[in-house]
Amino acid sequence: MLKRSKTILAYLIILTMLLCSCGEAYKDSSASPAGGPSGGSQSEQSAKENGDSSAKEQGAQEGSEGQKDSQTANSSEEAGTEGSIEENSEPADDGRKTTGFIDAPEGYFENVLFIGDSRCEGLRKYGGIEGPDWFTDVGLSVFNIKDKAIAMEEGAEPVDLETVLSSKKYDAVYIGLGINELGYDISVISSRFSDLIELVRSSQEDAVIFLMANIHVTAARSESDEIYNNERIEELNTAISMFADFDTIYYIDVNPLFDDGGALDGEKSFDDVHIFAKHYPEWSDFLRAHAVVLKERAQ
């Protein structure tokens, strides 16, 4: 009887130790249940992402190998992520066509086009920038950008991007895409980005193109998601930044405004992916402070 009790006790102690070693599991660190990379306004987006999952798993492997090469090769990529604010802020005569970053002059945003996904939609609704044309939609990506038709005004006929680009001469075109493509191979996304930039350049020879970095997701989201995590977002941002020449194509990154240690600050988002509406004005303030115009236009 005594021996059996001791054995049972021993087993119980070992079991308890094993269970307590997974103690972290018992701590409730989650704030709120997050969905796909979706708020309700993104229900289309999540449907697309789930539908596209077949290509993603293979793509993810190749993407991470490609990254190692690109990181060592190109130094401008580092400048792209951090120095985008400080660098090139003096409009000296350096053979470039543009001024570098300046404060947006009067009426700057009247002749500007935004091409983007749901985060740009947030900028449109809550950023308080009057004047631009918005070719933005939830679920927009470099893969569907050429086929998508969007109504640019309320009640207007939906038009596709080519029509928009050929109907008006813009001073600047801001591109904010990437989160919807994240499941795919980075090099494939990159080549589509290149196509898009070419498309824009072909009808907008004099426009300054701004490539906006993708905003991070929160740490909670990043840790639990194989695809929508900050490593992949940074990989993509790096690849996008390589298209910038800081003359006619600029790369800008607003992540420092919303980050907390390399991930989106959990206090600034409900769904771990989109910032609260009240934070978009900070983004638009950044854009106002980092406008670029052609030297011949700047007086």
């Binding site: 709120s32 309700g40 409900f270 769904d271 609260f276 509406a277 009240k278």
Partner: peptide
Amino acid sequence: GGLWRDVKTIGVES
């Protein structure tokens, strides 16, 4: 539920 989620995503003060 999408509507309430939208409201929370936007932020209740907005």
